[in-house]
Design a protein around this nucleic acid. Sequence first.
DNA 1: AATGGTAATGGAACCCATTACCATAAGGAG
DNA 2: CTCCTTATGGTAATGGGTTCCATTACCATT
Lengths: 158, 158
Amino acid sequence: MKAPHRRRGAMWWHGKFKGMGYRLTTSRQAILDVLGESSEHLSAEDIYLKVHRIHPGVGLTTVYRTLELLVQTGLVFKFDFGDGRARYELSEGPKGARHHHHLVCTACGRVVDYTDFIDEEIELLNRTEKGLSAKYDFKITNHLIQFYGLCNECRGRS
Amino acid sequence: MKAPHRRRGAMWWHGKFKGMGYRLTTSRQAILDVLGESSEHLSAEDIYLKVHRIHPGVGLTTVYRTLELLVQTGLVFKFDFGDGRARYELSEGPKGARHHHHLVCTACGRVVDYTDFIDEEIELLNRTEKGLSAKYDFKITNHLIQFYGLCNECRGRS
DNA sequence: AATGGTAATGGAACCCATTACCATAAGGAG
DNA sequence: CTCCTTATGGTAATGGGTTCCATTACCATT
């Protein structure tokens, strides 16, 4: 009954959400679940379809609204891979496990998640962040690193 | 007359262009000029308006087409600062002078170009690029680094 | 100069992800 | 239960960006 906490720690955002004065409604929960269960780079419509399968009552508008909210609160990242639709990814667990960056093929749009140089990158980014923060008086909350190029497949058919 | 090479080295792309089998038409020249003369982050429409002032015959479609072409050839970078319209910037001179990254305010959209930690960043990026290139069999042509946050103004009115 | 073929162009029609609107439903405090 | 705020869904509208297609510019040859 009620399928409670199927996954350990799946509710870590519960507190954060209510703490900010937002309600953790069924729709929002469902959207977060979808994001948490998929390791893909989902578009708003992808998410809508997945949510819709289980909660047919949830509308596309709500999905967009919720995603915006989640991005604002920092729970979710929004990416642009150049194909005209935004992609969303769960920011990550409570303490930044499994953080990654992207490698995008400009021909076919394929996206590779890599974690290979993450540690060095993060280290440099943190330093840079501090410097920029001070110099330009910004409160930096986020960063984006992406590499662009041609994957082996696309390089073939030149 | 003909106002030839008003700016020293302004035509460095001439060769590259023809070398790839493309014609350097008036429209394309005009668009490149606009990009070269402005240090702003211009949207397609911005460019259209500026070009239009001098060459009223050039249409918006041509601007889009040309920009796409320029991005393909690597002469121009295309950026997304999150306000729904793409921005374009001349990639830069023949040998990467004045390369910079961006710092974006997520509230008001203000964009700061910084060059402060560029050297370290580039150094790391080059190394990362090599590694990724080999591991994932990509021919990497480009990268993107952006920081997001709140500028001092926007932080005030919380 | 006339010719022929390809690349480039412009304007309008179109596409489609995202947003705005608005009337309705759901939650929570008293 | 009532009031009032927050959240929701469906539909219509918005607006960058693209596609279509008939016309024009360019260039190399006769």
